[in-house]
Amino acid sequence: MTPPATPDDIRQGLRTDAERNRARVLAAARSVFSEQGLEVPMTVIARQAGVGIATLYRRFPTREDLIGAVFDDRMDAYVAAISEALNDPDPWHGFTTYVERVCAMQAADRGFADLLTLTFPTAKALEAKRDTAYKGWLALITRAKDSGHLRPDFSPEDLPVLLMANAGVISATGDAAPDTWRRLVAYMLESYAAEPVRSNELPPAPAPRALYRAMIRLTRR
Rank of each mutant, 00 (worst) to 15 (best):
T122E: 15
R74F: 04
R58C: 01
P41R: 04
F33D: 01
A128H: 10
M105W: 09
R110N: 03
R110S: 03
A54W: 00
A28C: 11
V102I: 15
N87D: 15
Q106M: 12
A18I: 00
R110H: 13
R20D: 10
K124M: 08
G37L: 10
P91R: 08
R15S: 13
R22F: 05
A123K: 02
A125D: 14
Y98V: 08
V70Q: 11
G37Q: 11
T16Q: 12
W92K: 05
T55C: 06
T55I: 05
A123E: 06
D114R: 14
A125S: 13
R22G: 01
L14T: 02
A104R: 11
L118E: 14
A69N: 05
A28G: 07
P91M: 12
T119A: 15
R58P: 02
A107T: 06
Q48H: 13
M42G: 13
R58H: 07
L14W: 08
L126R: 00
K124V: 15
E127D: 07
G68C: 05
V79Y: 04
R63W: 11
L26H: 02
L118G: 04
G94S: 01
D73K: 03
A85I: 12
F120W: 06
A23M: 03
R58S: 05
D90Y: 14
A104T: 14
T97K: 08
R58D: 03
A69Y: 05
N87Y: 03
V25C: 09
L56F: 02
A46G: 04
R20K: 10
T117K: 05
R101K: 15
D114T: 11
Y78V: 00
S34N: 03
A81K: 06
A23N: 06
A28L: 12
A104Y: 09
G111D: 06
A104L: 14
R63L: 10
F71T: 00
C103G: 02
T119V: 10
R74P: 02
G50Q: 09
R24L: 15
I53P: 11
G50W: 01
E19G: 00
T55A: 14
T97C: 06
T96I: 10
F71G: 00
F95T: 03
R63F: 11
A27R: 02
N87F: 08
E127Y: 06
V79N: 11
V51P: 03
F112G: 10
I82F: 10
A128V: 13
F120T: 08
Y98I: 08
G52Y: 07
A27W: 01
